[in-house]
Structures are given as structure tokens and as C-alpha cells.
Design a protein around this nucleic acid. Structure first.
Lengths: 281, 281
DNA sequence: CAGTGGTCTAGACCACTGG
DNA sequence: CAGTGGTCTAGACCACTGC
């Protein structure tokens, strides 16, 4: 009985917001027949969703940087005045979204492209043999890196205005010495201030790892549009193939936290010895 | 205080397996210094994983059919002699894998391709406009459906032996009257006994829905290999395009429960007004 | 050894569905 | 209204990591 009483009054959290954002538990809403308030944006959501939002905000604000550990579940529970189970559920979802990685016995860490398991997270082109490691790391050749003004098309995809400054880079990836991928890359100039072809060329590791460590920009998700098209003159010269050879065209827009587009990449893949592998669930 | 005492003795669960498969809780392993037993295959796993396995088995065995409701969480908890939270976690994972769908207030149901939200679950080709609904349903034309013997290549992909009987079907999908997709489909003959071009043509709904309702075969996941290649004579005549036009080639192997391959489908997509859309996380 | 995430339980209460 | 899934808590104990 005493225990039940004690449990009951944990919903006394209305006046708890001291130095923290006001959390509204689902239970606090009972008796609230004010539909206007309920439907007001942003609508009320479960506690763990609110926690998730707060964690997300801390990630965006750079409170915890890629590769670092976030506070323990117990600490976060204390910080947000909720039970461990609630922050656990929030972290679970962020881990499912690849924003965090849990390591038993060690802690929970901000995911990063700089790690083995996420090295080529967005590159789905694999050798037909299936043996990813057999061909070794790709040879990367930066062919261009210049500052230009965004065309209307580029601007739209990157959520910029036409004419805004952007970086335009181009590179060729070769496997076993065979040019296989040609990529045109556009980046908003502001967040990537100080980018040069040298920095791109010298960096060891994936481009997205460079974005993180050098510019603090972490790509979280991406959307690709894939087509088949004939190689034009440029393609054929850079990939050393004949014109009109069918190429796999992959247009990718990559987003940071909060669905802000931060990169447009147009890839042209040679698919005679490789293929784009996709798993459907 | 009383409450605490009562909670303490809940770890008394050693002798619980009566008429059901023996579940081994993690806690039951405490004090077990027998590493041989622990490392013996299949390795011990968390209770909820074992529950997940049991649910999976019931799904495979057809105890609950696509679209039907499975027992409530409380019923399952009683059945397996575990707490509701444990079966909940098992169901959560199966729902994440799209094997089950939860509906608050109604129950948990076996997912099916016959529903709106899963109509074109495996078809990632969308109109460039992005407005999926604007073009209406595809016009489906079965051009072939015959029984043949599996080549070595087909057999390997379907886990059959060379020469085993398979159905081979072909169809053309048109959007707004424009032929856009050519598909060659191979199915193992045994599970799809009685398939005819008529049944394929007459069925309203997706092909995978037909597989479920008519043959009890539910496709759970698929893997696609995507390439760009030039249209050959057959492609050009069926899709009414010129030869050597670049086509998106999509080879898909679809699997039922337990990772058993049940369909090989080779699709050739025209990508001048449509594109293959993929989300990366 | 202390500290972390991982599992499991029990119980309360909520929101939603349908008769 | 009863029954379902959804949220939240509290507490016990486990497995793993590193000092």
C-alpha cells in the first residue's frame, strides 16, 4: 500500500521545471479536455519522445561530439527527472536511427562515419564477387574543387537560394586501378569554409568522416534517386569508357540533424563488375 | 517495505517449464560455471529472443495467417509464462521487421502484402513528379507463364537443383499507357502448384498478395542487385523503345520466413520519367 | 571492484477500439 | 464497457568493461 502511494505521486511533476524544459507526461494530460491545446503544434507526445527530442537537440548543439560518450542512462534519468526505462526507450530509438551506438559495459556513444562499421555507410556499390575486402580500398582522385554559384536546380535541392555560393568538387574512384565511379559533389559554402582540393585529397578515411572531424557536420541520412543513362563525353573521358555506355546515375541528397540538406552528390557508376546492392524489408 | 519484500521473490522462476518448450532465462544461468554448456550451440539467448523465435515458428507453421490477429500480449505472456514486458519486446522486434503490425486498441496482426500501406512494398520505382497517386494503378500485362526447368543460374539463386521445375512468367507494367517495366519472374513449381497466366492476370492486387492468399507464401524480405544495361532486342520490342537504350536492371530475390528464397525477379525499368528511390539511414 | 548497458518482472494508468 | 496495445515507474539482477 505504501509503495502504491509512493508510486502514485510520481506524477506530481507539474512544477518540476526548474532549470530544464517542461516535460509533460501523458498522465498529466488526464482530465484535460482542452482540445485546442492538445492539437496545438507541437502536439503533446509521450515522455520518451520528448526525451528523444532533447537528446537530439543536444546532439545538434554539439554538446556531445561524434565518437564521444553521452551521459549514462542513470545520469540522463536524473537530469530529465524520469525513470531509467524512459530514457532507455528514447536512446533505443536514436540508436535504431544510427545516431547513437550502445556498447555494453562502456556507455552510449555518438555514432560517427569515422568508424569501421560505418566506413561506407552510404555507398551501396559492391563488387559482383560480393567480397568487399578482396579489392582493397578505393583509389580516390580529386579532379576538381572550386567555389561556384548555385544554379536554381542545385539551390533547390540544398535548400539554398539561386546564386548562393557552393563548393563544387569532382572525383573519380578506382578499384584495382579501374575507374568505376565518377562523382560530382556540391556543398553549401558557409558550413564548409576553408575546403580545398588538398584537404579532400590528403584526408585518409571517408569523405563523411572528414566532414565530421574538419567541419563538425554529421550526415545522418540520405535519399537517392537512381536511373540508367548513357555516358556522355565527360563521363567517357573520365571513366575511360566509350560514349553511350549505360551508367548507373545516383543522385544523393544527404542530410544532417533536423533534415537539413548538406550535400548533393551525383554519382555515375560503372556496373559491369559491380552492382548496387539494396536490401528490402 | 512490504512492497519491496513482495518484489524480491519474483526471481523464483527456475521450475517453470511444464508443457511448453523449455525457456531459459538469463537469470537461470547465474551460478552456472559450466562454460561448455553455455557455449554449446544454439547459444543461450535472452528470454525475449526465445519468445521471438517461438512466435516466428508459429508464423511459419501458419498458426496465424496473414491479416489475422495473434493472441493478445497478456495471453502470450501467460502461454509462455513470462511477463507482458518480455513478449512485448519480442513483438516489438517482429513489428520492426514488418512481420507483425500493432494496432492500438485492436490487437497485433500478421502483416500482409494485401494491405494499402504495403501494396508496393518491394517496388521502389516512383514517378519523377513524386506524386505516386497521380498516375493511378499500373496496367499489368502478362505476356507469358510457362513451366520450365531451372538453369544452373536460376537454380542457385532459388536454392534448387539444376533442372528442377520452375514457373517462368513475364509481364509488362504500363503507367498512363506507357510501358515502363518489364519483368521476368521465376518461382519454384512445388509451392506454386496450379499457377496459370489467367490467375496472374485476373488477380486484383499485388502479385505478392496473390502469393499469400492463393498459395500461402508470404514474402518477408528481398535483396536487389541493380545495374545499368543497354536494351536488347526483346526489351526494345516489349517496352517499345529503341535498342541500346539504357535500362535499369533490378534483380530481386525474395525470401519467405527463415530466409528461404521463393522468387527470382529480373526487372528492367525505363527511367526517363521514373526513378528508383532509396532511403539510406 | 564500481560503473555501464541489458534483461526481466510487477503493477499502475493511459489511449484507443468496438460492441 | 471490457479488452487491446502504449506509456511509465521501480527495483532486482545479469553481462560486460576497465581500473
Amino acid at each position: 500500500m505504501i509503495g502504491e502511494m509512493a508510486q502514485n505521486d510520481n506524477s506530481t511533476q507539474s512544477a518540476q521545471a526548474t532549470q530544464l524544459p517542461p516535460l509533460v507526461s501523458v498522465s498529466d494530460l488526464q482530465g484535460t479536455t482542452d482540445f485546442a491545446a492538445t492539437y496545438a503544434a507541437p502536439a503533446f507526445s509521450p515522455l520518451y519522445q520528448q526525451i528523444k527530442g532533447l537528446l537530439l537537440k543536444s546532439l545538434q548543439d554539439g554538446e556531445w561530439k561524434p565518437g564521444e560518450a553521452i551521459p549514462s542512462e542513470m545520469d540522463l534519468a536524473a537530469r530529465y527527472r524520469v525513470s531509467q526505462g524512459t530514457v532507455r526507450k528514447a536512446i533505443d530509438e536514436l540508436a535504431a536511427d544510427n545516431l547513437l551506438v550502445r556498447r555494453q559495459g562502456k556507455g552510449t556513444f555518438v555514432d560517427t562515419h569515422a568508424e569501421k562499421h560505418a566506413q561506407y555507410r552510404f555507398l551501396k556499390l559492391v563488387p559482383d564477387s560480393g567480397d568487399q575486402s578482396s579489392e582493397g580500398p578505393a583509389d580516390r582522385q580529386i579532379t576538381e574543387c572550386k567555389r561556384v554559384r548555385a544554379t536554381a536546380e542545385i539551390a533547390k535541392l540544398l535548400n539554398l537560394r539561386t546564386g548562393d555560393p557552393v563548393w563544387q568538387a569532382q572525383r573519380v574512384l578506382s578499384f584495382r586501378g579501374v575507374p568505376t565511379i565518377l562523382e560530382d559533389i556540391w556543398l553549401p559554402a558557409a558550413p564548409f569554409k576553408g575546403l580545398t582540393a588538398e584537404r579532400l585529397a590528403d584526408y585518409h578515411g571517408s569523405m563523411y568522416a572528414l566532414f565530421e572531424t574538419e567541419f563538425g557536420v554529421r550526415m545522418v541520412r540520405a535519399v537517392e534517386k537512381i536511373r540508367a543513362l548513357p555516358a556522355n563525353l565527360l563521363h567517357s573521358s573520365l571513366l575511360k569508357i566509350e560514349q553511350n555506355m549505360p551508367l548507373l546515375s545516383v543522385e544523393r541528397v544527404a542530410y544532417t540533424y533536423n533534415d537539413v540538406p548538406m550535400e548533393l552528390r551525383r554519382g555515375y557508376y560503372l556496373t559491369d563488375t559491380h552492382h548496387y546492392r539494396n536490401e528490402l524489408n
